[in-house]
Design a protein around this nucleic acid. Structure first.
Length: 418
RNA sequence: GUGGGUGUAGCUCAGUUGGUUAGAGCGCCGGAUUGUGGUUCCGGAGGUCGCGGGUUCAAUUCCCGUCACUCACCCCA
């Protein structure tokens, strides 16, 4: 037997109601906030991701699904969405129409990681990109949309953390200072963090090893290195969130894993999840357009993981199922009359179904029960002769008689009125 | 990439200090009930005990390997 690939899951019909609610909410909320959907390819030239995400990040170094095209060009299954959106933006000249543009996407992403609760090799993200505005209000809007999304879905145990990396020169200066600080404590750092000194020193602040926590207690704060304008921008973001009553906390140690972030960064975590509790995150990436060969363009966005949302989604968020009708027809005259009723109901946009393998009323009712049908239309030879159809309420066992020739309108109307 | 846990019926899991026909609950099929489901009663089907090797008179049980699933590290959504 050929099995599916490790870390790649089927989304079965049982799980689809949750996915539908989550996706519908994403589309609706993005629309209300004035974001337009964009669909970008699931694979691109490898260089795009290397240049945008950063060559020394884990994603690029060991997590990408990369393969050669027939002509040898290196291609990669997208590990995230922002790079592709920015590429499309530049390539299609989307900026020429208006000063700023707000886009969103929903779709699968691919990373070759060891699977775990809330972490898969093919997973799905909903992300937005507010392109063209350097204003703090744009940051506020993106963060607010992220927070509202989770709130509307009633996810429990959420917390929003914010930080500012400042502009490039700010955090370069900081990085230098931090490295020299860490060097003085090098013997107390874990092996991992000693390696990070070279690759990604900011991550050492995030380390969970107690020794490292202790050693980095006195570390310089990024916040102290922010230029006045960076600081001012960040303050305005915070004020904007307060005005909208979005609860947040500051985390000067919050570091994002992708190289392109600058200024505001944020992350929402959910205590209802396991170890992988980051459910949505993002930030400003004012330098990315230039990095990818486009015009200098400020932008801010987020991405959130749909699988993690679904793991945390409470049952109460699911909508009530709509009533529908199981047609139980049998006998020489009943069968064709039932088929006719079945398709009449469907043509009136009413969900109706039957079981062609069941031939007796008993087996038909059993099928109806297993399918969870709230109503069954019973139609045998006797009913056809009398121009009748019986509507049975499966929960209460009540049965009502309708004239057969007008049943396809009368039954839906009757259900509506209840 | 590293470490831990778990692989027995469709599902959830017992079990065997190594011993002959491997169990339960739920589900499934049939009957009681030839025009009334879900409840009840009776009967039934369904298992290479993950796979490969080793030890042994004998392995589902012990040992080694391997694969899968899973949780955690790392990292991230």
């Amino acid at each position: 037997m050929i099995r599916g690939i490790k870390g790649i899951k089927d989304i079965t019909p049982d799980e689809m109601p949750k996915w539908s609610v989550v996706e519908r909410t994403a589309h609706a909320l993005a629309h209300v906030f004035g974001f337009e959907e964009i669909r970008i390819p699931v694979f691109e030239k490898t260089d795009l991701y290397v240049h945008s995400i950063g060559g020394t990040t884990d994603i690029v170094e060991k997590e990408m699904y990369t393969f050669p095209d027939k002509d040898g060009t290196s291609l990669t299954l997208r590990p995230e969405g922002t790079a592709g959106v920015v590429r499309a933006f530049i390539e299609r000249g989307l900026k020429t129409y208006q000063p700023s543009r707000k886009l969103y996407y929903i779709g699968p992403m691919f990373r070759h990681e060891r699977p775990q609760a809330g972490r898969l090799r093919q997973f799905h993200q909903f992300g937005v990109e507010y392109v063209g505005s350097p204003e703090p209000a744009a940051d506020v809007e993106v963060i607010t949309l992220l927070w509202r999304f989770f709130s509307v879905l009633q996810l429990p145990g959420l917390s929003l953390e914010l930080n500012s990396l400042g502009v490039l020169t700010d955090h370069q200066a900081y990085k230098k200072d931090l490295v020299s600080f860490l060097k003085t404590k090098e013997d107390r750092l874990c092996e991992n963090c000693r390696r990070r000194l070279e690759t990604n020193p900011l991550r050492a602040l995030d380390c969970k090893v107690p020794g490292c926590r202790e050693a980095t207690k006195e570390a310089p704060f990024l916040t102290d290195f922010l230029s006045p304008s960076s600081k001012d921008h960040f303050d305005q973001v915070l004020q904007g969130l307060e005005a909208l009553a979005i609860p947040y906390s500051l985390n000067p140690r919050l570091v994002r894993g992708l190289d392109y972030y600058s200024m505001t960064t944020f992350e929402v975590s959910c205590s209802a999840l396991g170890a992988q509790n980051a459910i949505g995150a993002g930030g400003r990436y004012d330098g990315l357009f230039e990095t990818l060969g486009g015009p200098s363009t400020p932008a801010v966005g987020f991405a959130l993981g749909l699988e993690r949302v679904i793991l945390a989604l409470p049952e109460s968020t699911l909508p009530q199922p709509v009533p529908w009708i199981f047609v139980a027809s049998f006998g020489e005259k009943g069968r064709p009359a039932g088929l006719s009723l079945l398709y009449s109901l469907r043509s009136k946009q009413v969900k109706a179904d039957t079981d062609y393998t069941a031939a007796t009323l008993k087996t038909l009712l059993r099928s109806a029960d297993r399918l969870g049908a709230p109503y069954v239309a019973i139609l045998g030879d006797d009913e056809v002769t009398k121009n009748e159809v019986i509507l049975r309420n499966m929960a209460t066992k009540e049965q009502e008689i309708f004239p057969l020739d007008t049943a396809s309108s009368a039954i839906p109307a009757h259900l509506q009125s209840r």
